[in-house]
């Protein structure tokens, strides 16, 4: 009888490779001038945080993300075509082109929204936790954010409430060492972030993001505890391989540091582990990578070929359908001038 195959690691690898390749294609979309703006924050180097934590979630769970959240959404099961279309500001995107990279959301997958305000999406999980308990949803709500948000007050208000009310909530810090161009030790004295969570009475853990299986194990413990009413905090230590956004060439850090940081590659680490432990042959992984590349190439075509949203959709969804809509400035001016002509 064959030894049991670690399909878990293979699946996690597949998720991480899809994230890595997707993010590379996002960069290409930008280079081709097809992205809507340059506000593109890539999560290359951080794939283990998304893959490991999402693998610990249940279908009914909800989450919010930050400005660097493509990977989390993909790990949760998003359609990369609709994601790329949204990043391109197209009608076929998740938010019909109105949200883009930093405001992508999907209620079907429990994605309560990405956020362009650092820390802005955190307190929503407190509300989702209240709903979970009040409406007996048995769901955990997870706030994903970067180390930049560790210095935002709203996080601590939220941690305090989660702990006070024993909510099914988890805070996940993806510590990529940089808030834009400011290295974490230039932003705070004590970078042992779990201590802060523990001070509020939360479960707290710090995990090296190099090994996705370790991330997953820590997340499983914390998610299970949260579901039972003991909220928690997880910091995943990774390195942001590239600049803050597409235009950022990282003038604030040395190339030597970057080269060293990029050695901490969770995708490569998982790949080598799969090969070294005999779970999968290199040849098969090459095939898998190739298939993922083809899948992600198609997302660009889909985004480029999709239509921009119709101009008339501009006034839709400010308020619910059937509620009074805003009147356009042009219509108001036209109305006033038409009266003068009469």
């Amino acid at each position: 009888m064959d030894a049991p195959v670690n399909t878990n690691l293979l699946e996690l690898y597949r998720t991480m490779r899809r994230i890595r390749t997707f993010e590379e294609r996002v960069g290409e979309l930008f280079v081709r001038g097809q992205s809507a703006g340059s506000m593109l924050h890539l999560s290359i180097g951080e794939e283990s945080s998304a893959a490991g934590v999402c693998a610990a979630m249940k279908p009914q769970d909800t989450f919010t993300t930050h400005h660097r959240g493509h990977g989390i959404f993909l790990a949760r099961g998003a359609d990369p075509k609709r994601m790329m279309a949204e990043i391109g500001g197209k009608e076929t995107g998740y938010c019909r082109g109105k949200g883009g990279s930093m405001h992508i959301a999907d209620m079907a997958l429990g994605h309560l929204g990405a956020n362009a305000i650092v820390g802005g999406g955190i307190p929503a999980v407190i509300g989702a936790g209240l709903s979970s308990r009040h409406l007996k949803q048995d769901s955990v709500s997870i706030a994903f954010f970067g180390d930049g948000a560790m210095q935002q007050g709203i996080l601590y208000e939220s941690m305090n409430m989660a702990s006070l009310w024993n909510l099914p909530v988890l805070f996940v810090c993806i510590n990529n060492q940089y808030g834009m161009g400011t290295r974490i030790d230039q932003a705070t004295r004590n970078t042992a972030f779990d201590q802060r969570a523990k001070a509020f009475g939360l479960n707290g853990a710090v995990v090296d993001g190099l090994d996705v299986e370790e991330v997953q194990a820590a997340a499983r413990w914390l998610v299970d505890e949260a579901r039972a009413g003991k909220p928690g905090f997880l910091s995943v230590e990774v390195y942001r391989f590239f600049g803050h956004a597409r235009m950022d060439k990282s003038p604030y850090r040395e190339e030597a540091e970057e080269l060293e940081g990029r050695k901490k590659d969770p995708v490569l680490f998982a790949r080598n582990k799969l090969i070294d432990t005999g779970i999968e042959e290199e040849r098969i992984l090459d095939e898998l990578d190739k298939a993922i590349a083809a899948e992600m190439d198609a997302t660009i075509d889909f985004a480029v070929e999709s239509k921009a949203p119709p101009l008339g959709s501009m006034f839709k969804d400010v308020y619910a359908a059937g509620e009074p809509e805003p009147e356009s400035v042009r219509a108001r001016i036209d109305r006033v001038l038409a009266r003068d002509d009469a």
């Binding site: 995107g93 998740y94 938010c95 019909r96 082109g97 109105k98 949200g99 405001h103 959301a105 999907d106 209620m107 929204g113 839709k316 969804d317 400010v318 308020y319 619910a320 359908a321």
Partner: peptide
């Protein structure tokens, strides 16, 4: 939220 998320 309603607007950014395309009315979802």
């Amino acid at each position: 939220i309603r607007y950014m998320f395309g009315g979802q």
